[in-house]
């Protein structure tokens, strides 16, 4: 079977990838979006917003909008202009040949698609604690998705680990169900935006355990507690909770590009002069190349940049 041939393939379907899809589709480039596969760890079609509830800071939605609904609208807009989608993960790329070759989780030994230009918008996936008990109790009190699992912790005492906006959003959401939510944070202050901090501080169900890190998730069949270590004096204590929601940040999803695209020491793709990577014809946008802002609207903006950069590059190549 010969591989499908395209001018542009977009890998990833969060705000960056879908904005790139809207723009390249409107440029009649017939983009193919390799959108990813279902997952519960923020690495899925639609990206991180698929696991959130209310999005209040995306311009144009003064009343706010649910994350999954926002992404459905992004997708519908891209489809309207002719973008096509394949529900698969890219498993391997060869950027040393022209056109570039991509293999996917639904394809076989041969490349599933070859493309003259490539837009990488694979985003980032949630970090896990990496402590004993976490993997074993995943789905048994340890959760990577507050919106999925909060319901099961009605009137219970639970913990959220992390101090950023995502952690505060999860903590506030979880107060709908839980009796108490303890935010466990390794520092003495939050990274979260002021508005989220104020809401969290004002919520009577939310408590804070500062300067603490999780050493172990305790419990036989389900979570019974967290063993915490105080980072200042090393003292340990057990926090009695039945749920543990982890929101300690993300890492870029760039493993499949290792050795082919230039990255920084944390795995973020390096871009210069707009969205250009070190390989001519490969462009990157969204959280996969953004270690600073990481917002839906900045991802969308950079997706537009990558689409325009790709379109102009293809034109210069003579299409």
């Amino acid at each position: 079977m010969t591989a499908e041939q395209r001018d542009v393939v977009i890998v990833g379907s969060g705000p960056a990838g879908l904005t790139a899809a809207v723009y390249t589709a409107r440029a009649n480039l017939r983009p193919l979006v390799v959108e990813g596969e279902p997952s519960s760890t923020s690495d899925q079609p639609g990206g991180q917003l698929m696991l959130t509830t209310e999005v209040e800071n995306f311009p144009g939605f003064p009343e706010g909008i649910l994350g999954p609904e926002l992404m459905q609208r992004f997708r519908a807009q891209a489809e309207r202009f002719g973008a096509e989608f394949v529900t698969a993960k890219v498993t391997r790329v060869d950027l040393g040949r022209r056109p570039f070759a991509l293999w996917t989780s639904v394809g076989g030994e041969e490349p599933a698609v070859v493309s003259r230009a490539l837009i990488v918008a694979t985003g980032a996936q949630a970090l896990t604690l990496g402590v004993p008990g976490e993997d074993r109790l995943l789905g048994h009190g340890v959760s990577t998705c507050a919106t999925c699992d909060g319901f099961f912790f009605r009137d219970q005492d639970i913990a959220v680990v992390g101090g950023g906006d995502s952690a505060m959003e999860e903590a506030l959401f979880l107060t709908r169900f839980a009796r108490s939510v303890t935010v466990v944070h390794r520092r003495g202050e939050l990274r979260a935006s002021k508005i989220m901090q104020e809401r969290a501080f004002a919520n009577p169900k939310i408590r804070f355990r500062w300067h603490a890190v999780v050493e172990e998730v305790l419990g036989e069949q389900t979570v019974e507690g967290l063993r915490l270590r105080d980072v200042r004096d090393g003292s340990e204590e057990v926090l009695g909770v039945t749920g543990c929601f982890v929101a300690i940040g993300h890492r870029p999803s760039t493993g499949v590009f290792a050795g082919q695209l230039a990255m920084d020491d944390e795995g973020y793709l390096r871009t210069t002069d707009g969205s250009r990577t070190n390989v001519e014809g490969v462009f990157a946008c969204g959280d996969v190349q953004d270690r600073v802002y990481r917002q839906a609207v900045t991802a969308a903006g950079s997706g537009c940049m990558a689409a325009i950069d790709a379109e102009r590059w293809l034109e210069a190549q003579g299409r």
Binding site: S39, Q44, G139
Partner: peptide, 11 residues
């Protein structure tokens, strides 16, 4: 058996 969390079809 139980399978927790979403997955792609092949997996």
């Amino acid at each position: 058996a139980r399978i927790v969390g979403a997955r792609g079809k092949a997996q």
